[in-house]
Nucleic acid binder design. Structure first.
Length: 441
RNA sequence: GGAGAGAUGGCCGAGUGGUCGAAGGCGCACGCCUGGAAAGUGUGUAGGCGGGGAACCGUCUCAAGGGUUCGAAUCCCUUUCUCUCCGCCA
């Protein structure tokens, strides 16, 4: 949610900033008109309320003094104000709702340094705050080379007999997968490893949140009102609950409608949860394999910070996500998303793209975003600063990383010519010491 | 699912129709006391919105929404959530 006062003060900046964004339904002048209408109504209503309150107080005093005649006269004077106040309040509510509804569908303003562009082709590779391509490459796992033609993950998985899309279809339809045996264990190992890493080495608090959430939480993290069709809902009494599309929803909403003390910040939370996405509108994309599923596991990182700290926290969170791929030995690159490719609530987003030799391309495995106070305004999440002033917090979220896609990356990068998959060192402890799975042995 | 109790400021908690945005406490801030601290002590301390350069003024908010009333934290209705007991249950 953007601040209408900021828009009023910077209408040109607003219109320019959102030019690179898709689907911006309102211009600054339309929003300002809505706000002016709202203020006009407020003036009228409050004047009537002030008059009514003062007369009512006088009635109380007159009655206390047993001056019935005066009380009666005042009663007649105040009578007509009742209607004025009531219709005024209704008009006020309408004007406020209109403005809020308009603001709720506006995307966040990208930070100045975000590259302007139309789609993923305009994303820009990122090498760290002061980084160069050469320096970044040094710190990252190298691209593997193969003496044979590397296979895609589903070829390997199906050949092993441990990845089954047909059984999954029988149970649940398209875009589901069944993992079995050692591959199921490997998926679990990857999730455990990543969660442990963020808790033990990166300063996050482990959280096991609910997987079903209410509409209010979804509104706070921008899934509602605009992206309802991406979600799965289950009926619940007269109402409904949504299956979380990401743990960002429960974790970020921890601080909804609260005023934190500055000492509690930064708050860093992480969780390993299933995620559920209807993938409406992505028919035909990534239909082979388990790259794009209705259900997948993900380790999510969320940080709540003061406004001053959010930019540094963004770099830290990116580094935390990168650490996962470094430790797993997966070659990757980082891109800064351009204005046209960024998500609705983000000020700036880095994507981590893992190298998939079977596909001979980089694929997104993590997305790390700083949202500024955009979500905090929607959630009414604030903190009290050192001077006692109440201000909105900043929120960040990032995948650290998607478990299903990490499994794909491990399977493709660690595949052997005999169809087996070597186990990265850091996962062996989670695999009872196994160094490879799926081999003919 | 049945019965009952409850929801008040950053937190705890008092308050059953007018002088209540709300006692008291905790916490926090500033001061006094102290060699320094603790303890003690004094003062201050809700948020949103509107107006104003500011001081400040107005308005709304006591879970949410509606109603009664000139006037509601307080009375009535609906909803949500929490707790206790019973039932069911991994």
């Amino acid at each position: 949610m953007l601040d209408i006062n900021w828009i009023k003060a910077n209408p040109a900046a607003f219109d320019t900033a959102l030019k690179g964004r898709k689907n911006v339904p309102f211009s600054s002048s339309e929003l300002i008109a809505l706000d002016d209408a709202r203020r006009a109504v407020i003036g009228e209503v409050e004047e009537a309320q002030a008059k009514r309150n003062s007369l009512s107080k006088q009635i109380g005093q007159a009655k206390a003094q047993k001056d019935e005649a005066k009380a009666q006269a005042l009663l007649e004077e105040v009578a007509h104000l009742k209607d004025v106040v009531q219709t005024g309040e209704a008009k006020r509510k309408e004007a406020e709702d209109k403005l809020r509804a308009a603001l709720a569908v506006l995307p966040n303003i990208p930070l100045d340094e975000v590259p302007v562009g139309a789609d993923e082709h305009d994303n820009v590779e990122y090498f760290g705050p002061n980084g160069t391509a050469a320096a970044a490459a040094k710190g990252r796992p190298a691209k593997p080379s193969f003496s044979f033609k590397p296979k895609e993950h589903f070829e390997t998985g199906e050949a092993m007999g441990q990845m089954d899309f047909e059984v999954a279809a029988k149970l649940s339809g398209a875009r589901f997968v069944v993992l079995k045996s050692q591959l199921a264990r490997l998926e679990r190992a990857i999730g455990q490893f990543m969660l442990d890493l963020h808790v033990d080495a990166h300063g996050y608090t482990e959280v096991n949140p609910p997987y079903l959430v209410r509409d209010e939480a979804l509104y706070g993290t921008n899934q509602l009102p605009k992206f309802e069709e991406d979600l799965f809902f289950v009926p619940h009494g007269e109402s409904r609950l949504a299956l979380i599309p990401t743990a960002e929803v429960p974790l970020t909403n921890f601080v909804r409608e609260s005023i934190l003390s500055e000492a509690e910040l930064p708050m860093r939370l992480t969780a390993l949860t299933p995620c559920f996405r209807s993938e409406a509108g992505s028919a035909g994309r990534d239909t082979r394999g388990m790259l794009r599923q209705h259900q997948f596991h993900k380790v999510e990182m969320v940080a709540i910070t003061t406004p001053d700290a959010s930019r540094d926290e963004h770099e830290k969170m990116l580094a935390d996500a990168e650490d996962v791929l470094k430790q797993l030995g997966i070659h990757y690159r980082v891109v800064t998303l351009c204005t046209g490719d960024m998500g609705f609530g983000a000020q700036k987003t880095y994507d981590l793209e893992a190298w998939l030799p079977g596909q001979d391309t980089y694929r997104e495995i993590s997305s790390v975003s700083v949202c500024g106070d955009f979500q905090a305004r929607r959630m009414d999440a604030r903190y009290r600063d050192k001077d006692g002033k109440v201000r909105h917090v900043h929120t960040l979220n990032g995948s650290g990383v998607a478990v299903g896609r990490a499994l794909i990356a491990v399977m493709e990068n660690y595949q052997q010519e005999d169809g087996s998959v070597a186990i990265p060192d850091v996962l062996q402890a989670y695999m009872k010491g196994l160094t490879s799975i799926g081999g003919r042995s």
